[in-house]
Design a protein around this nucleic acid. Structure first.
Length: 489
RNA sequence: GGUAUCGUGGCCGAGUGGCUAGGCAGAGCUCUGCAAAAGCUCCUACAGCAGUUCGAAUCUGCUCGAUACCUCCA
């Protein structure tokens, strides 16, 4: 089916490279998951939808993928000064609950949101608090290897020492000297030797809610060490793909690579994949800017920037219309366009089983398939794949109108291709209302009444039925083979 | 201030030296009791300026503008 092979843009090399797993057919993929101290917003969702497509496509190509996505539930500091509170403790104090209640609440919310977007669960979803021992062990190793130092009960990574032997900025493509010169002054504390040094282990104050014993006293892990520890544990010291949002490149992923090299003398991942941001009116959607959308606000339309609600699948389709490495701008107009496009696609999908076959085919299924796979092979180019999907939509509609013809074999191929691409790879799904069968029966009865009226030229009654149904939310179409309906929002 | 990335038709958004992206919106036609849907046709753009080239939206330079990172962030 495919003539090309999968290529992926690698942040590490800033090039698109042919993908070759280290141990085919197995693929190890680590994606940085959320910090569960507040509701997942739409920007977060975009990242995980993007990686869902990547996971689905790799699986579709026959790879046995181990997809690891962590939950950060400890140690994520408020500031990068390695002082102050961790996010869970802060939120917990605000809400008068135990930090693990915060973790539980927002982990459940995160899972619910991703389920609504029809993403597949990862193979392993490890938590930071569940891997304190691994993080301590890794910190010990980095200390033993000489790339970290203890200071007053905390352990810091020595960036300048590391940078003498390895490239600290290989991923971010930054100039180290400039980073050193531009980093803001440390705010009055001098536990750290270097300005870029970051914490592997942080000494806890007595009142701190989340703390664990360690060789350096009671404390909690730094933010970056968890991903190093957990990826090493579940995927090995060297694995195929590491991903996350683009905003993680300069700090989190940069430090992760440094930690892994300092510990194992190996860079963790061959390919680094980074997804771009969702923007609102051209500005990055983020919690700190206060312009973020919560998924349920989008679904219900209960948000000051929205005219109406949009279903999860509409939003997923909307996200697929842009490449994962481009920013995607959010607006009512764009969402409405996506809604109509998605409906058109799904309407065509519904027509496939009943398409009439003939002895000859005017449809070139092989070419359609090749085009779609070529697009996906080109760094998961979903917008181009969708463009070819819409070519198929046009063909399906023409077949339905009897303007094109298709053989039994070609129809089977077309059906398989469309189902695999739309449902399997792109992860779109039909959004069925409850009690569809009952509604179907009810509608058939109404249509009988209406066609009797039509046969009697009683168009007043037939149009009244149609108008009323539309008002309620059913749009009906009179086709050659009877009347059909779609539920509109 | 430093470092990147980007600037595509009414909107969203692919493409990256010559060949129609696609979706939505708009116009016309066909079908139809009227609609709706669908099909066909039309709308053919690449921030500005200069350069390279037979040829540039695509390469180079400059200008302008936007965004991101350098501080938590997917």
């Amino acid at each position: 089916m495919t003539s090309s092979s999968l290529s992926i843009y690698n942040t590490l090399t800033r090039q698109t490279e042919v993908f070759k797993p280290i141990h085919a057919p197995f693929v190890g993929m680590y994606v940085c998951g959320p910090t569960v101290y507040s509701n997942a917003h739409l920007g977060n969702a975009r990242t995980f939808v993007s990686f869902d497509i990547i996971y689905r496509y790799l699986t579709h190509l026959g790879y046995k993928v181990r997809y690891v996505r962590n939950i950060t539930d400890a140690g994520h500091l408020e500031g990068d000064q390695d002082e102050g509170d961790d996010k869970f403790a802060k939120k917990a104090r605000l809400e008068q609950v135990d930090p693990m209640e915060i973790v539980q609440r927002y982990t459940l919310d995160f899972h619910k949101v991703l389920q609504q977007f029809n993403t597949l669960p990862p193979s392993i979803e490890p938590t930071a608090t569940g891997h304190i021992i691994e993080q301590i062990e890794m910190t010990k190793k980095i200390l033993a290897n000489g790339y970290a130092y203890e200071s007053n009960g905390s352990v810091y990574f020595d960036v300048e020492k590391f940078a003498k032997e390895y490239s600290y900025t290989i991923l971010s493509n930054r100039n180290l000297e400039e980073l050193l010169n531009n980093t803001r002054e440390l705010s009055g504390q001098d536990e750290k030797r270097g300005r870029l040094d970051f914490a592997l282990w942080i000494k806890a104050k007595p009142e701190h809610l989340m703390q664990w014993p360690s060789p350096w006293g009671m404390g909690f892990p730094g933010w970056h060490i968890e991903c190093s520890a957990m990826s090493s544990k579940y995927l090995g010291e060297e694995f195929d793909i590491h991903g996350g949002g683009m905003d993680l490149v300069p700090t989190h992923h940069t430090n992760e690579i440094a930690q892994n090299i300092a510990c194992h003398h190996k860079s963790p991942a061959r390919v680094w994949i980074h997804t771009n941001m969702l923007t609102v009116n051209g500005q990055k959607m983020s919690k700190s800017l206060g312009n973020s959308f919560l998924p349920h606000e989008l679904f219900s339309g209960n948000h000051k920037l929205l005219d109406k609600g949009y279903s999860p699948m509409t939003v997923r389709f909307f996200m697929l219309q842009a490449h994962y490495r481009s920013t995607l701008d959010f607006s009512n107009e764009a969402l409405q366009a996506a809604e109509k496009g998605f409906t058109r696609l799904m309407n065509a999908m519904r027509l496939i089983p009943d398409l009439k076959v003939s002895a000859k085919s005017s449809v070139n299924c092989a070419e359609l398939g090749k085009n779609m796979y070529d697009a996906m092979n080109d760094d998961f180019n979903t917008p181009v794949a969708l463009a070819h999907l819409f070519e198929a939509v046009r063909i399906i509609n023409s077949l339905n109108d009897g303007k094109e013809s298709i053989t039994v074999a070609d129809k089977e191929e077309l059906s398989k291709l469309m189902n695999e691409m739309v449902y399997g790879v792109l992860g779109l799904a039909e959004e069925k209302a409850a009690n569809t069968d009952k509604i179907d029966g009810l509608m058939q009865m109404i249509f009988e009444v209406r066609s009797t009226a039509k046969a009697n030229k009683d168009f007043k009654t037939s149009d009244h039925i149609r108008d009323e149904l539309k008002r309620i939310g059913f749009e009906i179409k009179d086709g050659k083979d009877g009347t059909s309906y779609t539920i509109i929002n």
